[in-house]
Nucleic acid binder design. Structure first.
Lengths: 210, 210
DNA sequence: GGACACATGTAACGGGTTACATGATTTC
DNA sequence: GAAATCATGTAACCCGTTACATGTGTCC
């Protein structure tokens, strides 16, 4: 697997991958990107409108004007060179995953604030995990009844979805336990009950490396 | 909780939070940031050398030259204004967590590559999760024996550590199952066994919203 | 015919990354 | 004394974000 970096940023390959499924307009691409990739490759929607043009400039996509009702709109299709570029990118070693959570850095420095404040941050974190679970479940529950937009993509989509669901679930479960723990604290300073504070860590370490 | 954005980026508050523990040199700050925050707020080390100066410019830190052996080095300390700024930042609502994984977008478009390639990506993903687990475990295992660098921070550190350990573990477990599944595939195209492909999704959805 | 959501961007700005550079200290 | 590692940055670049701008269908 080659370690040389590809000529385009990952975001471009993501939408190139979408184009490999079928032709779309920029708007559809932006929406689909939000739907399918929001939780694994989050990007602002406004950013995506420039991507198809970049792909065309590289010869990886072609633009055609199609009628839509009384108006025309530009629809992008992948080119053979685009398929080759996508395949070459797949050969390339993936960057390390990256996770950032401001809630958790606030937890780390919560000793300089109140317990109420910390509980708010933890609830916020929990709520986001739950919302993420629900958003993915809403998209993928129909799959189980055979209602899928692209049946020949079901297997990879389902695999990725189950990862996002699993991680969202443990995050929510962790948050619940953390909230329960913090509710026992009188201050955000060093707690009275050291054993309780270390319980979660002990449990997480207990079963050894995965 | 105020929604107005603070005057500095989160990275600056992270190192301000470190300074609230004790004075450090830039080098120590950079190292400590990697040690404690790498998995919740990842930043390139070279970037961190500019941060203390920014804090001084805002009046949130002060620099003093201290002897270290035969040479001098600059050590930064938090100011009262810095502590106020940190507290104000804690009042502020946290940004949503963000997770990005190029491995998973490659999984999503793996239908344009080989199964061997996909397995390599999944192994890479699994290896990173395991490495992350081990890195955190190496830092926090001593805590259980009472060996802690900052005892009055143990409770928050332990909470955050258990989250990272938990998520690393489910990621590794997911990857193992995914590898097992893909090994049954003959091609990356639509699989022969639809039920098997949907099993992980079904299991993830089974117990309902967290 | 006004309001609202849909559809499609653009301009400016900035945080962050990679790559490079260099003196000091320890190790063999 | 050479090599490696520690310690400390700088410069250039770019991806991405926020904030704005505008036409066009649709609903009441």
């Amino acid at each position: 697997m080659s370690r040389s970096h590809p000529e385009l940023p990952t975001t471009s390959y993501a939408i190139l991958g979408l184009l490999a499924i079928k032709p779309w307009s920029t708007y559809e691409l932006a929406k689909q990107m939000q739907r399918d990739l929001r939780f694994v490759w989050p990007r602002a929607e406004s950013n995506l409108y420039a991507e198809p043009k970049k792909l065309v400039a590289h010869g990886f996509a072609s633009a055609s004007s199609e009628p839509r009702g009384k108006r025309r709109r530009t629809v992008y299709s992948i080119t053979p060179a685009g398929r080759r570029a996508l395949a070459a990118w797949l050969e390339t070693e993936a960057a390390e995953p990256r996770w950032e959570s401001e809630s958790i850095v606030k937890l780390l420095f919560a000793t300089h604030g109140s317990t109420e404040q910390l509980l708010e941050h933890l609830h916020h974190f929990r709520d986001h995990a739950t919302a993420r679970w629900k958003a993915v479940a809403a998209i993928f529950s129909p799959y189980l009844e055979g209602d899928e937009p692209f049946p020949d993509r079901t297997h990879v989509n389902a695999l990725a979805a189950s990862l996002v669901l699993d991680t969202a679930r443990v995050e929510a479960a962790w948050a619940d336990r953390a909230i329960g723990e913090v509710q026992k604290w009188h201050t955000t300073g060093a707690p009275q009950d050291r054993g309780s504070a270390l319980a979660a860590l002990e449990a997480a370490l207990a079963s050894g490396a995965p």
